[in-house]
Amino acid sequence: MVGPSLRVSLAGLRFENPLMLASGIVGVTVPSLTRAIDSGAGSAVSKSIGLEPREGYRNPTLVATQDGGLLNAVGLSNPGARIFAEELSEVRGRHLPIIVSIFGGGPVEFSRVVDILDSQEFLAYELNLSCPHVEGVGTEIGHDPEVVASVVKAVRSRTKKPLFAKLSPNTHKIVEIARAAVASGADGLTAVNTVRAMAINVETTKPTLTHKYGGLSGDAIRSIALAKIYELYEEVKVPIIGCGGVSNWEHAVEMMLAGASAVEMGTALYQGYGVFQDVNRGIVAYMRRKKFRKVQEMVGLGH
């Protein structure tokens, strides 16, 4: 008997398995993205790339919170589109399942980033419309359905590659925003980005992060992400990539049952790159036990 298959296809892309390296985690360099793929990720999303190089905020940029979360305000550090394009050119011909996350201050800036990157060999774009801790390029864009529509439309007109709009959980309008993205040409949605949060150190009596506000990820946000995915699955027809606090197979399956066609992992990387293999193995064992042959059979079964 043939065992269950982990292969997934979404938005015209085929991946060996549903697990993805989430944006912002280790993937600032092509060797790191490659290592995630070699370690068992079906695909890997780069750190968000903007038009110009950005150093990000001064440390502390990350802090573990007592509720099992990881709070960060790295500040979109990235080498800029031109240098990242050069780096991508080195893996040309290797057909790596790399997705490039991009950010910008509006439709014009997003378009310029796409123009610089588009001739490189990668599978798709993830539009970061939801960074909760950088002014002007995050939630100001991603919380306004009209701005989201204008960004997606602009990017759509510049590239043939599939587009995934990464949504913010920090708004009551997530369905409205998702609809605007889809109507403007997004092929899929990534739900969700980090939850805007803060930590205060009681000894110094001040916020721990240099930027004060950050984005919360990890265990603390998984249930929030799950509800958003469940809600979106009922309201939009495009594939959803689940993201938020997945660190074992059970979490990944839960997200697929809620409606995610693929699942990103980020904070879980504190366990090391081996986490992808561990979760894949767990999913296969679950599928065998529940007699699922394909991942797609699980997607949305929770409804």
Binding site: T29, P31, T61, L62, L70, L269
Partner: peptide, 13 residues
Amino acid sequence: KCGIGICGSCTVG
């Protein structure tokens, strides 16, 4: 930045 394998700042290859 993180010290725990998340941020990817400290790569050597």
